[in-house]
């Protein structure tokens, strides 16, 4: 865990209100793993007061890439950063995806901005495994496929790719993967993760999901981000420290 002020290398508007921010930060770029996150202080003023968590979208050499949409004042301010502006980063934080292990096909399932951690996951898995990616959104404007491989898309309104949810798309293509050893990587809205979990349990598939929760500190002291544990209902996990990536069987979604 470091607190570091690093310069913006580039701000790119990927799509309407969806941004990619590249920050030159070799200290964190060299150690961060896919699925881990950064807690960013957007401004030194009191508005916004708290840091904002962003999963690492990609690492390109010394650059950390973050992907976000404009959601509130914090992300609006971040989208207006220029080359050389310093970004106050706390990270790397949390537990990321486990890309090692006994599988030959990685199936990535992302909903909306839930696709954010997957470019880096794709990069780190590299050519060691087969990768198939399913990305969904409400409309074509919510489908982000930046930095991903073998992508199939789904939209609720049918404006791009399969008409339906991304999990329905995955189900419809599932037979193609029979006979391979699969591992599923999911990230997206809770309803999507729930239906992904159901499907993975029914088909006995190994699955890790990246979860989300409002948090303040990002490293365990504020206790602001509980998520229900399957095995220990008497206590919560913390999304920031025990996650944000969990084995799908370990958490109640």
């Amino acid at each position: 865990m470091l607190i570091i002020k690093s310069p913006v290398e580039k701000t790119i508007e990927l799509d309407h209100d969806i941004y990619l921010l590249k920050i030159r930060c070799p200290e964190i770029a060299g150690i961060i793993k896919p699925g881990e996150f950064l807690n960013i202080r957007v401004s030194e003023s009191m508005y916004p007061l708290l840091r904002r968590p962003f999963s690492v979208c990609d690492v390109e050499g010394d650059d950390l890439c973050l992907m976000f949409n404009i959601f509130g004042e914090g992300t609006r301010m971040l989208s207006r950063k220029h080359k050389g502006d310093l970004i106050d980063i706390l990270g790397p934080l949390g537990k990321g995806f486990n890309i090692e292990g006994d599988y030959d096909t990685a199936v990535i399932v992302g909903g909306g901005l839930g696709a954010a951690p997957f470019p880096y996951l794709t990069r780190r898995i590299g050519s060691r495994k087969n990768i198939f990616t399913f990305i969904g959104g409400k409309t074509h404007r919510d489908v982000i496929t930046y930095g991903m491989k073998n992508v199939s898309t789904a939209t609720d309104d049918g404006s791009k790719g399969f008409k339906g949810t991304v999990v329905e798309l995955f189900k419809s293509r599932f037979s193609e993967f029979r006979g391979t050893k699969m591992k599923i990587f999911g990230c997206g809205p809770n309803a999507m993760l729930r239906s992904l979990k159901e499907f993975c349990i029914a088909n006995d598939l190994e699955c890790e999901v990246s979860t989300e929760c409002v948090m303040a500190c990002g490293f365990g002291i504020c206790q602001g981000c509980p998520i229900e544990s399957t095995e220990h209902p008497e206590k919560y996990f913390l999304v920031c420290k025990d996650g944000p990536v969990f084995n799908v069987n370990d958490v109640v979604l």
Binding site: L49, L50, C213, V214, M215, C222, Q223, P226, E234, K235
Partner: peptide, 10 residues
């Protein structure tokens, strides 16, 4: 155990 989420708002 504490309260269910959401626990924090800015």
């Amino acid at each position: 155990k504490g309260n269910p989420p959401q626990r924090i708002v800015e």
